[in-house]
């Protein structure tokens, strides 16, 4: 039951982009078309699942026994950077179809602060390995949901008559703000 609550909370109530402001750069940068947004969302789900699993394992089995937990920021960012490189190489060789779909987004993700953010949140909130993995997966699902919705809105905005100084970034930010208000409505869901 707790796991289900954790999943809903990670994906919707504490949405990573709209409530916690992590991963804003890809959220605004790669949301012009629904197809690219879906690709980015898929790539984030893929990487974040692996990253939160690996980071939780390293934290619990290497850093904690050695009393090196204060090094977590340094270790996690290096693990994520190496992991993304490795995943990219692996996909290119083993699953070319998936690489075609996600490949271009992978270099972007290394420094998507949402990925590092999730691994650090898992540590700060004392989640165990299972909870960390669930939190990782559903935070990424929340990201994918948000970026696909924004892309849908932006495809419609293209056809609208926007005041000249609001064209581009400002109207996208306002759409994102309205989405954030809508997501605030979910906050009563979990205490």
């Amino acid at each position: 039951m707790n796991i289900i609550l954790l999943a809903i909370s990670a994906a919707f109530v504490n949405n990573v982009v709209l409530c916690q402001f992590m991963g804003i750069c890809p959220f605004l940068g790669v949301s012009k078309k629904i197809s690219t947004a879906a690709g980015m969302g898929g790539a984030v789900i893929f990487v974040m699942t692996i990253a939160s699993t690996v980071a939780a394992l390293i934290y619990n089995f290497i850093l904690v026994p050695l009393n090196l937990t204060y090094l977590n920021t340094i270790v996690f960012i290096l693990v994520i950077a190496a992991l993304v490189q490795f995943v990219e190489m692996f996909l290119k060789k083993a699953v070319p179809a998936l690489y075609q779909a996600l490949g271009v987004f992978l270099p972007l993700i290394t420094t998507n602060c949402a990925v590092l953010g999730v691994t650090l949140t898992n540590v700060q909130k004392d989640y165990n390995i299972g909870e960390s993995i669930v939190n990782g997966i559903f935070t990424a699902v929340g990201f994918a949901v948000a970026i696909i919705i924004l892309a849908g809105i932006r495809e419609k905005i293209e056809k609208n008559d926007v005041p000249e100084s609001f064209k581009g970034a400002p109207i996208v930010l306002i759409s994102a703000g309205l989405m954030a208000i809508a997501f605030m409505g979910l906050s009563g869901l979990i205490r």
């Binding site: 605004l28 271009v104 970034a169």
Partner: peptide, 19 residues
């Protein structure tokens, strides 16, 4: 042009240009 991430002209965000 924030929306295109064209401002991220450094290595961190080079993927966005490809994307």
């Amino acid at each position: 042009k924030l929306a295109d991430c064209a401002s991220c002209q450094n290595t961190m965000c080079q993927g966005s240009r490809e994307a």
